[in-house]
């Protein structure tokens, strides 16, 4: 496969418009126009674009394209962790959104995929939904006042749906059971040669309580938090951003949703700043996920807190090691102190 190359005589939106015009002609009929193309986010791991397909009959289809970055940087490598971070490619991500939707979780429609060629990297399209993804706005704005009290239950329900997907239906993905996932993140920490007594205690605490983790094994969203969900006035409208999906203990997703970093100041609401663990677990049971024990959620909340601390370290060292010099990454590196503080409140 030839790598996609940006033509220096064209801007990135110009080149992408030509790609989109060709594909939309196939999907919606020749003469389909592209309108309102705008890039929504940067990030080293993907590009997200918003545009409208203006069909020959005058109808308008709002769409989102998520594709691999054109200026692809190598994934960060960690000494002693040859397999790198847990992540899936765009085609897998799009397929997972389809499967999640079929399983009953709110998810945007993925009508078709974008094949890689000499002009573009691969990606997938979704119908563009109306709603909010920014965690702070979901927690503060009046438009979501009716939605907030429902979210924890709905999120639990949605998780139960996609955790229940038959493993045989899933695309090829990496999988780690709890003990292996602990070692994975500890190995990443070790790769920085920065001894960290607080995190070390967290890893020991978890290792000694592995029986609390439970032994379920299923699709994990991998980054299931306030910030990666789409919310409208009625509540949860979509589960987004599946790029960290993997196989593992599905309670990891529930614990991750309870990490303080996504509460944006609303600490008393443990689940995403909008709800309680009991609501989350009620929704999970109602969605067919069974009754998960509180101790199991606590284990995975501790794990998630520690994992967020390691991810802060990764971003800090992405700056320090010079892979991407960024004052933002440098500052996030110091947010590891927040997770260390949270750990000390969670642990005995």
């Amino acid at each position: 496969m030839t790598a996609a190359i940006q033509d220096p005589k064209l801007t990135a939106p110009q080149q992408l418009t030509a790609v989109l015009r060709d594909q939309m002609a196939v999907e919606y009929g020749s003469g389909t126009k592209i309108g309102g193309l705008v890039r929504l986010s940067g990030g080293a791991s993907r590009e997200t674009w918003s545009f409208d397909a203006l069909k020959p009959d005058g109808a308008r289809q709002p769409l989102i394209l998520k594709r691999d970055p054109m200026d692809r940087q190598a994934d960060k490598q960690f000494e002693g962790v040859p397999e790198g971070r847990l992540a899936v490619d765009r085609l897998t991500e799009g397929r997972l959104i389809q499967l999640a939707g079929e399983a009953g979780a709110p998810a945007p429609t993925v009508p078709f995929f974008l094949a890689a060629d000499e002009r573009t990297t691969c990606g997938f399209f979704t119908h563009r939904l109306i709603g909010e993804t920014l965690g702070r706005r979901i927690l503060r704005e009046d438009a979501y006042a009716q939605a907030r009290p429902k979210l924890a239950f709905q999120i639990g329900h949605a998780a139960a749906c996609f955790h229940g997907i038959d493993l045989d239906l899933l695309p090829e993905m990496r999988g780690l059971r709890a003990a292996a996932e602990l070692l994975h993140y500890r190995a990443i920490m070790d790769s920085f040669h920065q001894p960290h007594a607080g995190f070390e205690y967290g890893f020991s605490w978890l290792r000694e309580r592995l029986e609390l983790a439970g032994d379920r094994y299923a699709l994990n969203h991998g980054d299931f938090r306030n910030g990666n969900i789409l919310v409208d006035g009625n509540g949860l409208a979509g589960v987004l951003d599946w790029e960290s999906a993997h196989l593992g203990n599905p309670s990891a997703d529930l614990g991750w949703m309870c990490v303080r970093a996504w509460r944006y100041g609303y600490h008393d609401k443990v689940v995403g700043g909008f709800g309680d663990v009991s609501e989350l677990l009620d929704g999970y049971a109602a969605g067919g996920g069974g009754r998960v024990r509180r101790e199991e959620i606590h284990f995975w909340q501790v794990f998630g807190t520690l994992r967020w601390g390691i991810l802060c370290m990764i971003l800090g060292f992405t700056h320090i090691d010079g892979e991407q010099r960024s004052v933002e990454y440098a500052a996030i590196g110091r947010r590891a102190a927040e997770t260390e503080y949270d750990l000390m409140l969670l642990l005995d």
Partner: peptide, 16 residues
């Protein structure tokens, strides 16, 4: 634990 808690509190007092 007393040491780790104090250290974490000091770190956060500086960082945020």
């Amino acid at each position: 634990l007393a040491h780790l808690r104090q250290t974490a509190e000091d770190k956060i007092a500086l960082a945020n």
